[in-house]
Design a protein around this nucleic acid. Structure first.
Lengths: 221, 221
DNA sequence: ATGCGATATATTGCATACTATAGTTTGTTG
DNA sequence: CAACAAACTATAGTATGCAATATATCGCAT
């Protein structure tokens, strides 16, 4: 039988990763509320691992800005405020616009085709009222462009911001915001800019694609 | 006697912080070379703490991109390549330009005066051939603007990028690059944009102030 | 001599035990 | 009764020990 080529080592998740993933999910979906105090011993017990991996997970969450640790005292889930919308989206817009600018110069035809496919999928999800799927496809489209710019710093910062944005939506809206046809069109504008190798246009289109939903979200909240 | 107002609790550094600071310094200044393998036990001994805080420091360094850990195997100092110059500076430019744009709308007169003071100091350092001092004052100027934009995400990302840039200079040049009068002038252009509350001009001037040294560095290496 | 497998060694990952410190309660004294 | 301090409790920080895993070494068979 043909052995799968890109066989990912089953990647047994370490206790640290398990703890990190679970706690992060709980924070994003609001199970752990902003301001809530986290006890190492408590989580250690409920996740069935010792305090060590819990502490390691806390550290990573702190770097990501999802918890704040007060040394020797406690660690709490960080708060979320309305003003964060602007801070998050404007930063993400700056990074993605820059990535689009770079990608415009490097992109190859089949990669453009892939973006078109992704955006078609996105359009279907928007049209058939599947907000989760739409949100995920949207993120995939953006991440694909970040990947194209092959800039690991941008990729890492972008991830971090996206997590906070998702949390913001959950905390304030309890659901993903509906993506609109406007977003689909903006994506196509980005793709056209890529086809024309027009870095400046790609930059602008990408900025639009993030600033518009930011304004919508600011109104909704 | 009058007690100092802004008395910073001596902030006894934890073992983890000590370890992190020291290892980071060693990586930036090249004591620990790119690609070098790091042993928990070795560093634990040389820093006089147990393996636990060393492991915690490793984790933070990994997030910062200064080391790479291969789980269950080893952790090594990450490499630095010429292509990183563009990746680092273009990302930093995007973030700082965005920060300048925001700051232009929020800045108050006395804060503009403070920037002028900082830049005057910077000019003196450049003129008197003190490259270290110049580099530090330059960073202070930029950080002041990031602070003004009051965006913790940008601040954190910026810090991280600056660390990598400093390391790049050390690894390839073994010294800080000489700042030039051009940089001083660009700073004044940013300040003028602030005085005019001209966000777009601030954005452009800031971008220039980062892209130019990037090109210089690319030539030098 | 070389390739393979078994055994030994080194090193990380996790758990537990110990220590230091912040917060709380309680007791004592004015 | 109020105010302070001492001891008690809870929790985080650090060290150490044990288990799992990867790498290296050695011996054996071909």
């Amino acid at each position: 039988m043909p052995v799968p080529q890109n066989f990912k080592a089953p990647a047994r998740k370490s206790a640290k990763e398990k703890a990190f993933d679970q706690i992060q999910r709980w924070i994003i979906d609001g199970t752990l509320q902003p301001g809530e105090k986290l006890l190492e011993s408590e989580l250690s017990e409920s996740l069935g691992v010792s305090r060590t991996p819990i502490r390691e997970a806390f550290q990573l969450l702190e770097v990501k800005g999802l918890v704040a640790t007060y040394p020797g005292k406690e660690t709490k889930v960080t708060g979320v405020e309305k003003e964060d919308i602007f801070k998050l989206y404007s930063t993400l817009a700056a990074l993605h616009a820059s990535a689009a600018e770079v990608a415009a110069k490097l992109i190859r035809p089949e990669q453009i085709r892939h973006l078109i496919d992704l955006n078609t999928e996105f359009e279907r999800a928007v049209g058939s009222d599947q907000p989760y799927l739409a949100m995920e496809t949207d993120e995939e489209f953006h991440n694909a462009i970040v990947e194209l710019s092959s800039n690991p710093y941008t990729a890492s910062f972008s991830d971090s911001l996206q997590v906070h944005i998702r949390r913001l939506k959950y905390v304030f809206l309890r659901q993903p915001i509906d993506s609109t046809q406007a977003s689909v069109d903006e994506h196509f504008a980005i793709i056209r800019a890529f086809q024309n190798r027009d870095a400046a246009a790609a930059h602008e289109a990408m900025k639009q694609n993030l600033i518009r939903p930011m304004r919508e979200l600011e109104h909704l909240i």
